[in-house]
Design a protein around this nucleic acid. Sequence first.
DNA 1: GTCTATATATCGATAGAC
DNA 2: GTCTATCGATATATAGAC
Lengths: 211, 211
Amino acid sequence: MMSGASTVDAIRRVGLEMFARDGYEATTMRAIASEVGIQAGSLYNHFASKEEILWDLTRGALMQLTSRIRESMETLAVDADARDQLSAFVDAHVRFHALNSDQASIVNRQMAGLSATHYRQAVSLRATFETQLGDILRNGDASGEFHVIDLRMSVIAILQMCISVSTWYRADGKLSPDEICAVYVQLSQRMVGFDQRALMASGPRKGVSQR
Amino acid sequence: MMSGASTVDAIRRVGLEMFARDGYEATTMRAIASEVGIQAGSLYNHFASKEEILWDLTRGALMQLTSRIRESMETLAVDADARDQLSAFVDAHVRFHALNSDQASIVNRQMAGLSATHYRQAVSLRATFETQLGDILRNGDASGEFHVIDLRMSVIAILQMCISVSTWYRADGKLSPDEICAVYVQLSQRMVGFDQRALMASGPRKGVSQR
DNA sequence: GTCTATATATCGATAGAC
DNA sequence: GTCTATCGATATATAGAC
């Protein structure tokens, strides 16, 4: 038991880590309890079932990501163009998946452990991201800023690209979240057909990074 | 038991389907045996353990994908440019992940069930795809065909984009594999900074698809 | 709210008859 | 090679003392 942290928060913290690392089915209530420092039966004073822990973590991760995206979009001016909107969206998405790889694993890999009802709710929450990005791309294409090849496939491809950062980013690696976000923002702009040559002409183009 | 198919092949077929749909840990040997039409104990006449089934399927999927990519690359002329190489690679990757979503699930989501030794072997096999695509991008950047922003991130982003097709493609959907591959090839060309304007100028540009 | 003890079920894997 | 029967371990979840 940790001082200064409630038992329920300790269960959340341990469950998140173990579900992400070992998978939901491979993680046992006994293992969670042991890491928290209590007996397995005591877990049921805080969560009705193992699935309730997963649902709590899934819902929390999705709401955290929702908040980060909303905060990032709110920094934009009301008349921001589609390019700025896309940048804010991709930046928030990449940053979240880099800095919260455990939450990313829960949402992207462990959702099969949810009950049918909770699974539907999670998919519904996740679909809002696709809708948001789809709106940005549609507006950008309509205004002539973008030249989208296919709306739905572009949306999924960009989202999946952002999500994949969670599989390789390491806090002790050579690249900072800022640097990574900058690259993915550029990639997303290319994918939607935003013409960057005007920007490139304003400064010397850097060589390809060969880390 | 199916006539014309050996028991071991039936186990492979059923295991692939159940591992992909329910996950490795959530799939029981009894469930596999039941679907095959034999008793659970009889499975051990064909595989030493549950993990051996997963490893057989993982290895098979990775080798199938390897073959598809090699076949696609071999259709190219010996002096094919980087753009054609990228197209052949992406086409094969997207096509495989669309038409073999179960194999894709095994390789991309169920590998945590493998033993440490088998896991390392699978990761090693999978790394060859990254190396191949990395070579194509590096050569294309060196020759001036591409303008790669960051080699490693571009490789991962493109691969993950191709893989994601397995999560939404349906054989009874509106899009054929050919149409999907065409879109993803274009997306990949944009991501590596291949200039398409010369091609676009040769014909009227189509509006964005709003399916 | 945590403990000990346990109910109830199911798991992967094995043994030996046929 | 498949069957029946079962081993030994472990799973989630519960009951009741403190």
